[in-house]
């Protein structure tokens, strides 16, 4: 089965400024892919290349087996899109906005109304007497999400979808994502909200140095992150640190640390701790969330490239 999205060696520059250089990845049917990266890393540019509103300088990109740059309207009808702005027409009400999008997607108004009744029944913001421009940013984003899920398309692009959402709205969004996935849809979610990435994505790619690096996460860390259940005596932390070379963190009744050589480090740590009289509880590897991996990547990058020195 061919992937829903496949990008191979994508290069995109604006003038002399190269944003993406050899970016490759694929998203399979039913998969949710998280896209992270620092500000200006090229996340939105990558999404725009996949949507066909920008053209790659070189490389290949295919969405549902088609080049999106061909601007096939039928291809876009299979997509739900929320970009970094809500994209609603402010002078119009929710219903007027939705009527236009339903018509563009070839969806009848009755079907659209039934969908909207269900969508808005879970939130309290529906107000068809007010123009959308009088809504708050979060409310407008909810309208945009309502538009994106209209007709349950097979592919979704979300660029910072959760940034303005309150807890209830985020829960609602999360439920909609799950429903879409149950229907076999694929998603690309770009966000700085790492919790949202943890919650929604199966795989995560980080844009760094103009390339997309696939991150490990959600239990895929192998034996790198470990936890030893013990009391908070700093001596135990020092012993673990000496053995592994890092700085263990005490949290939730256990010492957490990273090791690149669990096979020899873990028995040595257990032996030394026991020898010093530490009452060891559980010793086990920790399934790591994407957010931890992403933060570690950001920290590693900051350490490698501290940026220009500030002079006074």
């Amino acid at each position: 089965m061919s992937p829903v999205i496949s990008a191979n060696n994508l290069v995109k520059s604006f003038g002399k400024h190269t944003i993406l250089d050899g970016c490759s990845f694929a998203i399979e049917e039913g998969e949710a892919y998280g896209l992270v990266g620092l500000n200006g890393a090229g996340k939105t540019t990558l999404i725009r290349l996949l949507l066909g509103v920008l053209r790659a300088d070189s490389g290949e990109v295919e969405v549902f087996g088609e080049n999106p740059w061909r601007h096939d309207a039928a291809l876009h009808r299979r997509m739900g899109v929320v970009l970094d702005h809500d994209g609603m027409w402010g002078n119009l009400t929710i219903d007027q906005n939705m009527k236009i999008f339903a018509a563009a997607k070839g969806i009848g108004w009755n079907e659209c109304k039934a969908y909207m009744e269900e969508y808005w029944s879970r939130t309290g913001i529906y107000n068809n007497r007010k123009a959308v421009k009088f809504f708050s940013r979060g409310q407008r984003m909810q309208c945009a999400l309502c538009r994106a899920f209209l007709g349950w398309p097979a592919l979704y692009f979300f660029d910072e979808p959760s940034v303005a959402l309150d807890v209830d709205a985020y829960e609602h969004f999360s439920r909609l994502v799950r429903t879409a996935r149950e229907r076999g849809a694929s998603l690309l979610i770009s966000s700085h909200q790492l919790d949202a990435i943890d919650d929604l994505a199966d795989r995560v790619g980080m844009l760094r140095d103009k390339r997309l690096i696939e991150l490990e996460g959600k239990g895929l860390q192998g034996d790198r992150l470990w936890a030893v259940a013990a009391d908070d005596n700093p001596q135990w932390g020092a012993i673990i640190g000496e053995q592994c070379g890092g700085t263990p963190v005490y949290s939730g009744g256990e010492w957490r640390f990273e090791t690149n050589n669990a096979g020899s480090d873990i028995p040595a740590i257990v032996k030394r701790l026991a020898g010093e009289g530490c009452a060891i509880g559980k010793v086990a590897p920790v399934a790591q969330d994407f957010s931890v991996t992403i933060r570690n990547e950001y920290r590693r990058r900051a350490a490698e490239d501290p940026g220009p020195e500030v002079t006074r």
Partner: peptide, 12 residues
């Protein structure tokens, strides 16, 4: 307003 980009990807 950014709505043009949404219109371009709306299926029209």
């Amino acid at each position: 307003s950014g709505s043009l980009e949404i219109l371009l990807t709306s299926g029209l």
